[in-house]
Write a protein that binds this DNA or RNA. Structure first.
Lengths: 344, 344
DNA sequence: CTGAAAGCGCTTACAG
DNA sequence: CTGAAAGCGCTTACAG
């Protein structure tokens, strides 16, 4: 048997389509008896409105798109929990990996332009996305909020929720300096992203404040992954002068470095202190447990979702008008056993 | 200015809506000159078909839903790469966490019933999903393929792609036995899932073959996470007789156990051999690197996608007719340094 | 190769 | 509180 439509329900209940529609969407506007009768028919027939038709007719869905870099990264898990907690009941959340865009399987723009989604939370604002979004600005504004990563230049007008990456990198570097280290290097992320730049400036500033002027020369770029960390370690430990402390742009890089260190005769933290970033669940599992910079992931998700909610509910309101464009959340140094005072 | 519709394009190009529609969907059926003219207008106006209208009209989308347990788990990353490689150009892939279902933010059924998706790949077939799917069977069949986990009883009629979990657990246990261990325990997953049962039977069988009859008594149930491993370790190491080897249902459990072992004075692998499951990227990073059972993740993704493709393209064909319902892929023992022969 | 026409399943003013 | 009617933007036989 074919799926029942609203027409069929109306016929069986002896009312008009309009009334059935109201029973679904505005039950308070319907007479109690009518409502009961219609609901009974809906129950009996197993009718469910065709969401495709509904969305089409209304010109909007109730789907929020959350873009992450890749699903393998555990840091997104908490953020998305936060998002779901805020958006959960009213909106569906679909996930998209920005990675897939890079691979050329691009549905992103289709989703947006076709108004298949009502809002977007960008948990990564890497170049391919930002450019595409900007190219879209001749289309009606779609609410977009950036979480986790600070905005790229392209997206400077969008609201965002993230930590102060400059300060976080400054604090982490400062901690290593205070532990007596001088030969510190920063294994940073991919060149060019704003988040990377922020952190690099924080690193350089902390080094400069400690009287080390060539901070910028002590920055290495790596892919933000275990592989990236391993590759960086090989470049790093092959040199004549080795650092005594390493600050890494994320925990995966730090774990990669840590796995390679023994092969170069380096013990962590005796010979080499390592500091990560993100405080993923694997940081605490490392041996030795990894010191790192924690971000309030769940909170980032919740706040990003709240801002998106506001933007979706009041599309007329200029985001800049409400409050600060960027919402800055506190970070926290988590000191474990991968860092230690420099041996004299 | 409002978004142009097909009507507007037709007017500007001096043709009918039908022709514009053909230019988009069946350009080969349109005169070259006409096509060029229409395409020019499309270009100039920036027209893009409203996918919502398109999908509604066609009664189908081009969206495939992939359900994973949670995005924090790195094992899904490769699988989804595989899926995307096969499905990528023709279909959009959206991800859904089954976790969110458990939290009650259920959009799953809506997505299916409303035909907002044309196919589903279930990378977890835990109870809430399987039950809901089964309840749906009065609705038109939606192509569904199960990957990674073997089917649950509820979903016995669906095609699936996975390793032989019974054999894999048997092989892993056998390896520990061959290394001289007798006091082996299996830290299994949550009770009741079919994949767990398969592995438990494999464990018991290997133990029995080695003359250890009480294998079933040597099974512990844990949540498939680092936390689960930590909790299991506390239960386990508090006992009087401690095992000399542990086989864990996934790498996260193994890592959790490994992180706790030192607190009980247990060195890995000297006092305790630990074997994981899945070979996630973090297994190789552990200290000592974790021995584990590798699944051909990318291949699982690709094959699941191919089966789904076939099911979507030939909806009439009974899945059972094509070939075996379950496609079994080879697993592989990856022996690193967390396992060692039992000390005499 | 092209156009006129019907229709997908809903929602939404509008009138009563 | 309810119904008749129009219409959202497309696609698809059908006729020419």
């Amino acid at each position: 048997m074919p799926k029942p439509t609203i027409v069929e329900v109306a016929r069986l209940a002896g009312v008009s389509n309009s009334t059935v529609s109201r029973c679904i969407n505005n039950p308070e506007k319907v007479d109690r008896k009518t409502l009961a009768r219609v609901r009974k028919v809906i129950e009996e027939t197993g009718f469910r409105p065709n969401l495709l038709a509904q969305s089409f007719r209304r010109g909007r869905t109730d789907i929020v798109l959350v873009v992450i870099h890749n699903i393998g990264s555990s840091i997104f898990s908490d953020i998305i929990d936060g998002i779901r907690g805020v958006l959960g009941d009213r909106y569906s959340i679909i996930l998209m990996e920005s990675r897939s865009e890079e691979q050329g399987h691009s549905r992103f723009i289709d989703l947006l332009v076709a108004r298949q989604v009502v809002g977007v939370i960008l948990l990564c604002s890497s170049p391919p996305f930002s450019r595409k979004l900007v190219e879209l600005d001749n289309f009606p504004r779609l609410p977009v909020v950036i979480g986790l990563e600070p905005i790229s230049e392209d997206l400077a007008s969008l609201p965002s929720v993230h930590i102060d990456n400059h300060q976080a990198a400054f604090d982490a570097t400062r901690y290593l300096l205070d532990s007596g280290h001088r030969e510190i290097m920063f294994v940073s992320g991919e060149r060019g992203s704003l988040i990377t730049q922020d952190r690099e400036r924080g690193f350089v500033a902390a080094m400069a404040q400690a009287g080390i002027a060539d901070g910028a020369a002590r920055i290495l770029h790596a892919e933000l992954s275990i592989q990236g960390g391993i590759a960086a370690a090989h470049r790093l430990f092959g040199r004549e002068t080795r650092p005594t402390a390493l600050f890494c742009a994320n925990d995966d890089i730090a774990l990669g470095v840590m796995s390679v260190a023994p092969r170069f005769g380096l013990a962590v933290p005796a010979d080499l202190s390592i500091m990560g970033f993100d405080d993923t669940i694997y940081a605490a599992m490392a041996n030795p447990p990894l010191s790192t910079v924690a971000q309030p992931t769940r909170d980032i998700g919740e706040r990003a979702a709240r801002r998106l909610l506001r933007a979706m509910e009041r599309p007329d309101e200029t985001p800049a008008g409400t409050d600060e464009l960027a919402e800055i959340l506190p970070h926290r140094l988590v000191i474990r056993q991968s860092t230690a005072p420099r041996l004299a």
